[in-house]
Write a protein that binds this DNA or RNA. Sequence first.
DNA 1: CGCTAATCATTAGCACACTAACGATTGAGG
DNA 2: CCTCAATCGTTAGTGTGCTAATGATTAGCG
Lengths: 168, 168
Amino acid sequence: MNQRLAAAAIEASDEDLLLEHQLCFALTVASRSVVGAYKPVLDKLGLTHPQYLVMLCLWESSPRSVRDISDALAQEPATISPLLRRLETAGYITRARAAGNERALAVGLTPSGAALRQQATAVPGTMMERLGLTRDQVGQLHQAMMDLIAATKAAAERDADARDAAGT
Amino acid sequence: MNQRLAAAAIEASDEDLLLEHQLCFALTVASRSVVGAYKPVLDKLGLTHPQYLVMLCLWESSPRSVRDISDALAQEPATISPLLRRLETAGYITRARAAGNERALAVGLTPSGAALRQQATAVPGTMMERLGLTRDQVGQLHQAMMDLIAATKAAAERDADARDAAGT
DNA sequence: CGCTAATCATTAGCACACTAACGATTGAGG
DNA sequence: CCTCAATCGTTAGTGTGCTAATGATTAGCG
């Protein structure tokens, strides 16, 4: 029965290849569009969107390591590293060796970076208003995205398991 | 009344700055994760995800101009241009001057590029299965993304109008 | 205690994605 | 006709984002 459903679900139709039907396409465009909608707002703070996310991260807790930040943002340390360098140049963060662990970095806030939080408090509300979204709508979309992320994670783990089994 | 609702909607709360509450964050992670989930599948076709979208575009209609493709994919021509060069190197597309308009380009499919469509027909179904999504779920998410895109477009137009008014 | 494996951050190399600036071609108005 | 503005594609420059490789440090295990 599950077999039949699965078979039915993956039955290929020519219409499935239409660009306009692709969820992945709609998703990437939505992501780029929403990030783009943040631009005029974040420009006032002198931040790009990825940099804004790093600052949110540090306003919640600091100092923290590069690995810690990269885990929180679901990105590779290699992506975060140059980003932090730019934030340091901008004068918002400090980068020092962690006490008691010379290989880890302690990424902290400068007074300027800490002060920026005050201006940033207005950003989420401004964006909801700009996009004409209610808190409920944001919450529902957020949940839908989290479910999608969980689905990709499950797929990645199945792939990893399959690789392990093959490698055995 | 609308004023009161709007005011209530944008009332800033400290919790709004929590990374975990940001729709934009969930959206970017979801986008990267889903694109990442395509990677093992598209690797078999020798395509990156953006390249896959260009091919979908051309399988629907070709030859077409760079401008036409960039409009269909909601991207800048400057982004598409080097992407097309790589697809040409891969042997999937041709780039020739358009008949009757020497400045436009006619981007077409090679036999190899046209043949690739057969293998690609399995991709959407494979991805639905990989992510454990039904057609209904995909449709609902797709609609939610389209609504979000429309909201950002409306915001961008308001910004443009405001600029025009200021420039007057 | 000492060696080996794991962890941490960075760099290099590739591919997007954007804005701005540029040369080439075309169209539209005088 | 003919100039001038608009359109087309490309390039340059900046900023992500990834994988792979590297050097430095630490931890774990004999």
